[in-house]
Design a protein around this nucleic acid. Structure first.
Lengths: 340, 340
DNA sequence: CTGAAAGCGCTTACAG
DNA sequence: CTGAAAGCGCTTACAG
């Protein structure tokens, strides 16, 4: 089964292959009637461009890379990634760009993977997630001059796109709400401190608490896993001045906290309000269902893809801040029990 | 920054580009000393093959496709896919093969995506998951003659690799265990009936029950979501002869069942034993922790990649049955309460 | 064992 | 507006 090539189209349309190329790519150089004829012949023949040939002659690879540096098991429970990928995908496939996915253990491996894919001309750009404060991937991106979009805040001096949401604002909203319910002693169980967004959220938390005259709240650091979330919760709930509300940095830890409360005989939400920093089906799977900060992760993926494709197309990098995640109130939060 | 090509290597090593190609690909046609010299020069220059050039000259695209036909939201909660992908990835990247991922809505879109990727010469083969009994993707695979591996049982008359596990045996083991605990009234909440493995498991369930003289057990069909799992559980637990144990086809539904039991005032495991058909962190996140059928999903992905790469390399398709998932007993199963 | 050359299917200056 | 041609970086028969 021979594949149909532009040579064949050219022959049938009675033009040169160059003309076919121009017509197919919507560039000037062919008259409108000729273009129409060529397009029709291409369509009849069911022609598809060979990405290899295109790529070899200097054009795009028509693929972008996503290198995720996480262990497979933690990836599995975090609903975030699959939804983000689905969002990316939807936009990419519309523009006929493929997604090249890699799952690696750490940043060193991620860097190797990016270098290789770029050297092999497999990708036109990359999406970078889980940004660290000091992130070793960034200088490599710059050195390679590979179009990249950061899933996070833009960085001064770094030429890259950036897409992020106002999670700091959401944390602030959450604190306001809990304070309005009557809580004064609110703690936070944060994620990995090396991650940039963890720090941004912790800072927002502290600031919001201070705004209400509630200085120096307890903040625990974890690695985002259920185990560390549970452990941090046990410690917080064992304090003399135990909090009446805890904000968690993701959904998995908030679910784990529910079990700790149960095991310690603390009722939710009467004695403890729990608020999850991510929203997903997980929050609906448990009882009481979890109040959470929710946002459209698929749209996030889609916008990330758009910014990246713009850069691949030669436009300058864009920094795009998405909206503030919404507080979705369910059954795990309420006014604190009056103990006086 | 010019990329280094084999022409440059050839010049430095004082041989022809053909010789370089042979040396680099480990084929006969160059003497050992020459080969060594060439490899060294290539290494010094940090040469990487251009996949586009390779692919264009008739070799492999060095990518395989995975088209997942599911909604983004259900994908998110199912920990299966990310772990499976991580397993695939690990094996593929070792062999320098990229994974091209697509997430689509249904089989029609999956077929379009496969056809396109194949026509564009982007992929050398595909992995097919979530097989239906009558699966419209199969004939297309055959028509295209694209190397494919089915994540499921082999099909007579279909030239494709197949990798599956003995889930039927695992269901049988689970029934044996519950019967040994003293259960007589065991029900099953199954997944999508159109899926092949759902039917295989239901058949295994019925057969195991019959073997114990427990004919005609209740079996509910669902779409694998928490909602339908909860609904099916409510109906089963509302029957006069309500079951003392229920087997769920995945982990998400088993978690949902836990909430239904709670809402109906039925204690687990004293009044109801719950057994999850998939094992994941989810099963550990809830209380009581769920007894589950567990298996190594990453290894599953890895073996799938191996079978596919063999086929891409020209070897005949292999059918590979992996082991029987193990019954991991946790707190959600126990002997039924004596009610007499 | 080695060299010279054609070819894979496109894109893109360069002449007309 | 159009045609002829070179070139992208490899692989692979085909001669020597």
């Amino acid at each position: 089964m021979k594949r149909t090539t532009i040579a064949e189209i050219a022959a049938r349309a009675g033009v040169s292959t160059g003309a076919v190329s121009y017509a197919l790519n919507g560039r000037p150089g062919v008259s409108e009637p000729t273009r129409k004829r060529i397009l029709q012949v291409a369509d009849e023949l069911g022609w598809r461009p060979s990405v290899a040939a295109r790529s070899l002659s200097g054009a795009r690879a028509s693929s972008v890379g996503l290198v995720i540096a996480r262990s497979a098991d933690t990836l599995g429970v975090e609903p975030f990634f699959m939804r983000f990928i689905a969002g990316l995908e939807r936009e990419l496939s519309e523009q006929r760009v493929a997604l090249l996915l890699q799952v690696v253990e750490d940043h060193a491996a991620a860097i190797d993977a990016m270098r290789l894919a770029w050297a092999e001309r497999r990708i036109d750009g990359v999406v970078v997630t889980d940004l660290w404060n000091e992130d070793s991937r960034i200088p490599v991106l710059q050195e390679l001059r590979i179009p990249a979009v950061l899933v996070g805040r833009p960085r001064p001096g770094v030429r890259a796109g950036a897409v992020w949401n106002d999670d700091a604002g959401a944390v602030s909203d959450a604190v306001d709400y809990l304070v309005a319910l009557g809580h004064r002693n609110i703690a936070r169980v944060a994620g990995l401190p090396t991650l940039e967004h963890t720090q941004a959220r912790v800072a927002a938390f502290r600031k919001a608490m201070a705004r209400h005259g509630l200085a120096d709240p307890a903040v625990a650091e974890t690695d985002y896993t259920a185990e560390q979330g549970a452990q941090a919760t046990r410690l917080l709930l064992s304090r003399r001045d135990r909090p009446t509300a805890i904000l968690y940095d993701n959904d998995v830890m908030a679910v784990a906290a529910l079990n700790v409360a149960q095991e310690m005989g603390i009722t939710v939400p009467a004695e403890l309000s729990i608020l999850a920093g991510d929203d997903s089906q997980l929050c609906l799977l448990v009882r009481p269902a979890l109040t959470a900060l929710s946002w459209d992760i698929q749209a996030y993926g889609r916008d990330t893809a758009r910014v990246l494709l713009e850069m691949v197309g030669g436009q300058p990098p864009r920094s795009l801040e998405l909206g503030t995640p919404a507080l979705t109130v369910r059954a795990s939060t309420g006014p604190p029990l009056r103990t006086g």
